Amino acid sequence: MPAILGSLKVINISSGGVLSIGDVGLISPKTTAKTYAGSGSFNTGDFPQTYNVISSTNTNDNDVLDENIIAAI
């Protein structure tokens, strides 16, 4: 089904990122990363406002592999 878009604002696309507009059969990133951040760290928009009194981030990770990338050609 076709996508109808209004305005689109792309700030940044990293070297392993994927930007897709419209119909997509398969989206396959080529890299993965694990990022730890506290409350309100990844807010987006032109004028974000956050009010966090106490923020704690749990970084315990017991599994060995999180995302296994399988290249699809």
Results as ranks from 00 to 15, higher is better:
V53E: 10
K30S: 15
A3E: 13
L26Q: 09
K9P: 00
A3H: 10
T31E: 15
Y36M: 04
S39R: 05
G22W: 03
S15I: 05
F42M: 07
A33V: 09
S41W: 06
S41V: 00
L5P: 00
I11C: 03
F42L: 11
I70T: 14
A3F: 08
D63G: 00
N68I: 15
I54T: 05
E67C: 07
F47V: 08
I73W: 04
G40N: 02
T32L: 02
V10I: 15
K34Q: 10
S7F: 03
G45I: 01
G25S: 13
L19R: 02
I70W: 01
T32F: 07
T35A: 10
N62D: 07
D46L: 13
A72R: 13
T57S: 08
L5T: 11
V53G: 05
I54P: 00
G38Y: 01
N60A: 14
D61I: 12
I73Q: 11
K34Y: 06
P48I: 04
E67G: 02
G38A: 06
T59A: 09
V53M: 07
A71M: 08
L19P: 00
V18R: 09
T59H: 04
G22Y: 03
K34M: 13
I69Q: 07
I21E: 05
S56T: 14
F42E: 04
V10R: 04
I13P: 00
I21H: 03
T50W: 00
A71G: 02
D61C: 03
L19M: 12
V18Q: 10
I11G: 09
V10F: 08
Q49D: 04
S28H: 06
D23Q: 14
N62R: 07
G40A: 04
N43G: 13
P48Y: 06
S39D: 03
T59R: 09
V24D: 12
G16N: 09
